[in-house]
Write a protein that binds this DNA or RNA. Structure first.
Lengths: 146, 146
DNA sequence: GTAACTCATTACCCAATCTAAATACCACCG
DNA sequence: CGGTGGTATTTAGATTGGGTAATGAGTTAC
């Protein structure tokens, strides 16, 4: 259990994280690098790129989305040719989702575009602030998974 | 313009911020301290608590929401008795939104509840991680406002 | 071998936000 | 003055992302 001595500071931080995360989330929604690809779809592709492949259920848990939503997302991605669905080797209830070469290319493209946005943000932040963000990023990821 | 030397690291951080912010956002949505009050409504109340009072347009800009959405939100808050609407002193197009005493009490209550959630999160993070979060919180806020 | 559980899906629904257009008002220029 | 262009808010309608409940197929445990 971390520093109970800093309760007030933590509380203030939680407040500010809450509102910042929400506003930033809305903003990110609009700044999607690829029109026609929702933020969650992007996120799923990112997860697949990192983890190789996964079942819809696993993806739903990772993204903190209900299974039916993930079914829909995967279906959309498949329709766009960004994802492949194969039967699970030893459980015929499950399926295995993996990204296609096309998704790989798209991610590369989107990475490039993201640099533009990054550059524009860079105008507003100094080195120190960036450093803090870099340090906090993994913690936020951990938090997102509780 | 900050450290171009760390371009790759920044890019990785941006990726990880993106997905973390989104997932955390979804999670926060469900963890609302007060049922019957949407995250954005909460955020507006927080803004009013900090800034005193503001016009709907100002609030919309601050929350990164379109004006019509803010109209709705303010109307809902007013219906719940958490916000007061008065005519703008020297521009009859505008209105001035300010929080009621009841909102003040509710924020206090919600602050208390938030501590419970905070405590449960604390189980999963160590001192160092919390420190990083605290350091990054203001930067995230700044980022949210670009 | 059946009962209980799990994964994915289908069908339906809801909440939050958006865009476009309407309304009321201000400010300036002739 | 009076009109013209711009701004604040609101109304109306559409979209979208996600959720819940119920179904079907498959697996596991007793």
């Amino acid at each position: 259990m971390p520093d109970l001595l800093h309760g007030d500071e933590n509380e203030a931080a939680v407040n500010s994280l809450r509102s910042a995360v929400m506003r930033l989330g809305r903003r990110l929604k609009h700044q999607r690098v690829d029109e026609s690809l929702s933020p969650t779809e992007m996120s799923v592709l990112g997860t697949l790129a990192r983890c190789g492949s996964a079942t819809p259920g696993e993806l739903a848990r990772k993204e903190h989305v209900q299974p039916p939503s993930m079914t829909r997302i995967v279906a959309l991605l498949e329709a766009k040719g960004l994802v492949r669905l194969e039967p699970h080797p030893d459980d015929r209830r499950q399926k295995v989702v993996s990204q296609t070469e096309r998704a790989e290319a798209m991610l590369e493209e989107s990475r490039r575009k993201r640099n533009v946005w990054l550059a524009s943000l860079a105008e507003g932040l100094d080195d120190d602030e960036w450093a803090k963000l870099r340090a906090a990023a993994p913690v936020l990821e951990k938090l997102a998974h509780l």
